[in-house]
């Protein structure tokens, strides 16, 4: 009995505890991301933003959640019930699943996979299913058009995301996310931080823009463009199923920001391994980098007009794809010529 406990039950319990330690902060983060988005955009537009519920409106996200929960769940006529309710669940769980491999501090990771980068890429490429299934199952024109747009958009931008990931991988020489972060600890020319966004600056920008497209955020939010498609694939959703989509989308933003931080901004590493910087724990650094990426997400939303669909496709296929391919070839050539290929 004791052996069973040590070998089987305790590991499972421990993993569940670890998962909760990741998910609870993320869900609270999602709640306050919606609040931050409203506050930041209102500041940029010289409004006040939510300020009634709680101090400075801090309880607003919970009030919104309660409001959503008390609404009626509507199933449209002719909708496919199973797929209709499966879609928001898929979107939500995929955004949560990715956190299994994201290291927030040395050794602080649920599963230190050897193929962590591939796992992240796989999870982010599955995100399209939630959208497509929702659009199809709703049995509505607007939802279907939104889903079709989204499928094409996400598949297109995934290609350049993949190539940029390969560029980063050959620089670091590993597929393991913890090792990838450690590979960025070596200072560049002895003075600059070794984070990959400095040597790969163009790819950092292209990657961030592709992430905007991948998460269906402004200025690439065509799948839910309200001026033409009501709310795109989410048109027919209400109450809890809508809340799951909403949570999933924002959790996805946090997850993608985490990915940007790990690939380009050095994960938990401080900019310099010197006294004032390395007193701050790695988790705080990682959270700060994620917060910075999220701020840029919101900043972009407040600043740029929406892309037209053909311009979106042109940018993905004719600009980003060749650019990332050229950069990949350049990086590989550089590494081989100067004999810097990581062992």
């Amino acid at each position: 009995m004791a052996e069973l406990w040590i070998n089987y039950i305790w590991p499972v319990v421990w993993i569940v505890i670890q998962i909760l330690m990741f998910l609870v902060p993320i869900l609270i983060g999602v709640a306050y991301l919606t609040y931050a988005e409203r506050k930041i955009i209102s500041a940029m537009q010289m409004r006040i933003g939510p300020n009634v519920v709680g101090w400075f409106g801090l309880l607003q996200p919970f009030a919104d959640a309660l409001k959503l929960l008390t609404k009626e769940t509507v199933l449209p006529t002719g909708a496919s019930p199973v797929v209709f309710f499966l879609a928001p669940m898929i979107t939500f769980s995929l955004a949560m699943l990715a956190w299994a491999v994201i290291p927030v501090n040395p050794g602080w990771v649920i599963s230190d996979l050897n193929v962590g980068v591939l796992y992240l890429f796989a999870i982010s490429s599955l995100g399209v299913y939630g959208v497509v299934m929702a659009g199809w199952a709703s049995n509505s024109r607007y939802a279907f058009l939104g889903a079709m747009r989204s499928a094409a958009q996400m598949v297109s931008y995934e290609v350049s995301i993949g190539f940029i990931m390969i560029t980063v991988l050959i620089t670091a020489g590993t597929l393991n996310l913890s090792a990838l972060v450690e590979a960025q600890s070596e200072p560049l020319f002895g003075v600059l931080p070794g984070w990959y966004f400095i040597p790969h600056l163009p790819m950092f920008i292209v990657f961030f823009i592709s992430v905007l497209a991948e998460t269906n955020r402004h200025p690439f939010d065509l799948p839910e463009a309200e001026s033409e498609l009501v709310a795109g694939f989410m048109t027919e959703y209400s109450s809890m199923s809508f809340a799951l989509f909403f949570l999933g989308e924002y959790a996805n933003m946090i997850m993608m920001s985490g990915m940007v931080s790990i690939l380009f901004l050095g994960g938990w590493l401080p900019p310099y391994d010197a006294t004032p910087w390395n007193l701050i724990p790695g988790v705080i650094w990682f959270a700060a980098k994620i917060a910075f990426c999220l701020f840029v997400f919101i900043w972009v939303r407040a600043t740029f007009p929406r892309y037209r669909y053909d311009q979106l496709m042109r940018l993905g296929w004719k600009v980003f794809l060749p650019l990332s391919l050229i950069w990949l070839a350049l990086t590989a050539g550089f590494l081989v010529y100067f004999d810097k290929v990581p062992a």
Binding site: S125, V128, V155
Partner: peptide
């Protein structure tokens, strides 16, 4: 396993579904 998910689920099946 990861390549199977990325290529078949993430790309080929999306086109099928589409």
């Amino acid at each position: 396993a990861m390549i199977l998910v990325i290529v078949y689920v993430g790309a080929v099946a999306v086109l099928f579904l589409f």
